[in-house]
Design a protein around this nucleic acid. Sequence first.
RNA 1: UGGGGCGUAGCCAAGUGGUAAGGCACCGGGCUUUGGACCCGGCAUGCGCAGGUUCGAAUCCUGCCGCCCCAGCCA
Length: 559
Amino acid sequence: MTASDSTPPADFIRDAIASDLESGRFTAPIVTRLPPEPSGYVHLGNAYAFAISARMAAAFGGQLHLRFDDTNPVKEEQEFVDSIQADIRWLGIDWGEHLYYASDYFEQLYDWAVVLIKREKAFVCDLSADELRGHFGTLTEPGRNSPHRDRSVSENLDLFARMRAGEFDDGSRTLRAKIDMSSGNLNLRDPVMYRILRAQHQRTGDAWCIYPSYDWAHGQSDSIEGITHSLCSLEFEDHRPLYDWFLDELGVFHPRQIEFGRVSVTHVPLGKRKLRVLVEEGHVGGWDDPRMPTLAGLRRRGFTPESLRNFLERVGVNKRQGIIEMAFLEHCLREDLNRRAPRAMAVMRPLRLVIENYPEDQAEELDAINNPEDASAGTRKVPFSRELWVERDDFMEDPPRKFFRLSPGREVRLRYAYFVTCTGVIKDAEGKVVELRCSYDPETRGGDAPDGRRPKATLHWVSARHALSAELRIYEHLFTTDDPDGGGDFIGNLNPGSLELLGDCKLEPSLSGASAGDHFQFERLGYFCVDPDSSPEKRVLNRTVSLRDTWARIQKRRV
RNA sequence: UGGGGCGUAGCCAAGUGGUAAGGCACCGGGCUUUGGACCCGGCAUGCGCAGGUUCGAAUCCUGCCGCCCCAGCCA
């Protein structure tokens, strides 16, 4: 099944929205929202969630909002506000004019808090964080009421106003909802609505020294925006009774929250904290390091937004928490790149090959197909000459049974060029092969023999005289373990071989005009993407993903 | 020993009482001027386990087991 002919199966969220529309609980258009906190870069897990909300809005002809949940100024930064928007847009998700911030609603939230105080549903609590913890109870034991729980409305009003006015120290008081300290649902044990915090907020500056908690801000923000379906991940399921309580006490528009299971991907962490550690401790080059599961990293690596969207959709939506194999992500990527990436020839680990019977000063232009999957991509000319670069791995002096490539005395085809036969091997003092001597058959120009003989292997090559040099960056899994988000030693499981720099690679000359972000398939090697670090003086490409490699699998089996 | 959620193949996932879709991975074969792509075939007598209801159960009932989330003035 491919992206174009797949119709995503109805999932439980789709069903729920459809029945809400049918029952009249909500009237079209539905409104969903993406609620990122600007405290990190967008990663695959976020993208999965965003794609669900975007898809639902699209499926029902609804509206999509982007709202930054910027209720904690100590964690949030403008850099993230900017990168998140750029990355979501790159993914192909469009929120139109509907960009909002929870901080847009700080004044309204404050007013609503006053309403709850007046209705004796909220109170100012003087307990410190530690003291509060002492009153909170445990999973199995109920908590105890705050000694300040029964303050008068007027005292609460006065204290709350003075909290806002900055009369009290950070952390010295909170505003708490008055619900039920004995609830089995911990979220209902008189949760904190406001804390005192003197920090520069990236949008409101120092206008506030009290900030609403996420739980207090979230549901009301949805309500203000008229969100009909607030889709989020499972860990908020037991917060829903709290959101319901706030909304009902306030008597305002009541969105429906539906929770789904989040997904993760093997060999890479998606926890925000862990990604931050990787960046801050320098284990990777930054948030956009091509090994990172961030959209910025994946983009730089060479992922296309189409392949990612397709992946995100094919994973499905339900309430399980799946760990998807990286191989599936790679499959979706290859499927897309196979159709669109122009082919070219490049040599990663060059080995000189000299054709002894080819004239010294001769050169010719051979026709090569740009993309066998797309006839409209046309053909190009590739220069050929006496001295070539071929892949070191394509030669073995003493080949095992299933090795079809070059070895002494064996004939192979050079793609789009000629058949060559290895006639000699030149070694250095250490015995390392440094050059191959070959003869070619002039009758096989273009790659076909008049007598119909067919070599078992076709090799890629680059004319030494015409070659462009380049650095290729080869990536492997960032972690050696399936589940770096799980327990155990996190940093200790980093894959020391996740990045290999190949500094002496050779490219066919047609690549001279390639610019950052261009995708190619280097035949027999994999898909590559020009890195932003690349310049005409120093070309740099990232290997996005290798081609499926049957030979490598055979070798692996023998080990 | 509280509350919430989830268990279908190595992974993802359909299935909502009528006899286990599909994809990835893997295995076999075809085709091939990329050991790529593509094509064909194989891959759960079985749906966490045990009972029960029923002509019939992954689907309903009961009990058990396992896993995840919650005790931030994080989101």
